[in-house]
Design a protein around this nucleic acid. Sequence first.
DNA 1: ATTTGTACCACATATAATTCGGTAAATTCT
DNA 2: AGAATTTACCGAATTATATGTGGTACAAAT
Lengths: 160, 160
Amino acid sequence: MDNSIKVKFDKIDRKILEILQANAKITNAQLSKDIGLSPAPTLERVKKLEQSGIIKSYHAKLDPEKIGLGVSTFVLVGLIGHNKANIDAFMKEIDQIPEVIECHHITGTGDFILKIISKDINSYQKLMLEQVSEIKEVDSMQSMVILSTFKDSKVLPIPA
Amino acid sequence: MDNSIKVKFDKIDRKILEILQANAKITNAQLSKDIGLSPAPTLERVKKLEQSGIIKSYHAKLDPEKIGLGVSTFVLVGLIGHNKANIDAFMKEIDQIPEVIECHHITGTGDFILKIISKDINSYQKLMLEQVSEIKEVDSMQSMVILSTFKDSKVLPIPA
DNA sequence: ATTTGTACCACATATAATTCGGTAAATTCT
DNA sequence: AGAATTTACCGAATTATATGTGGTACAAAT
């Protein structure tokens, strides 16, 4: 288990992190210019940030509409019980549904919030009826359909 | 304005998209092996996917805990009015708050759902009191604090 | 059947990443 | 404070990777 202890990094590292969050495809040469170092130590810093786990991975961001994914939703899910066994069973099922791209345990209204993406309303309904609501630990579900997305930043605000 | 019309792509393109979503740092040489083509046409396909807008961008994913971001939340926000002017004004303010990393217009419970990330509960409270609730279009706010994240996939389920 | 276009490969070249040896600055230890 | 040690840096050589080119086979269209 990786216990996510905070790791040290300086002002230059922070700048690297900001740049790589916004544009992971930048060349090391350009990155080194942007931060004011030569390529060698720049690369060293990036490698260290990767090894320390501050940088976890790199991902291509796609346009959902262009690949035929027209419906995105948030779903508040209430479980029938709150014990660890139930939660584990629920998560195991959720893990196997690729349309569920996020699952968070939350305080407040529901127990969990899911982010789901699918082709259209029909396939969304089918997914919910035949997969999500079939999970026996699921009690209640409340869907919020995304009408439009105004902001979807991949850049976290790194504290000073 | 880019109107996100669906664009054509075949089985090989789909595989490329799946791979690049999961790991944007793969070399073109390795990618070409994985999909069973030589490097030249592989690169050509990737470039086309970028030019067509199917691939929008590339991003480094960080570990929030390791950079001192311990509190993530979803916030349901109700506005005082639903007209376009109000929504635009609200969005303009939201855009300037880097801690708000997502903002979606939704059906259901509230009008908008935000995803917010901050250092700790104190700075979260400060952010909400001094910035978000100060936006004059904001009527109601309901916070859901994320206790833990079980799934956070960067891979969209591309329809067949 | 011929043409036209598309997708592919192998190979050559250009660009970029990575490694290495050495130096200066910062930190630790006595 | 001064010596020893570590850390971070640079420039240059090397290696790896991306990119460009010419030619070929296949598919679709005329």
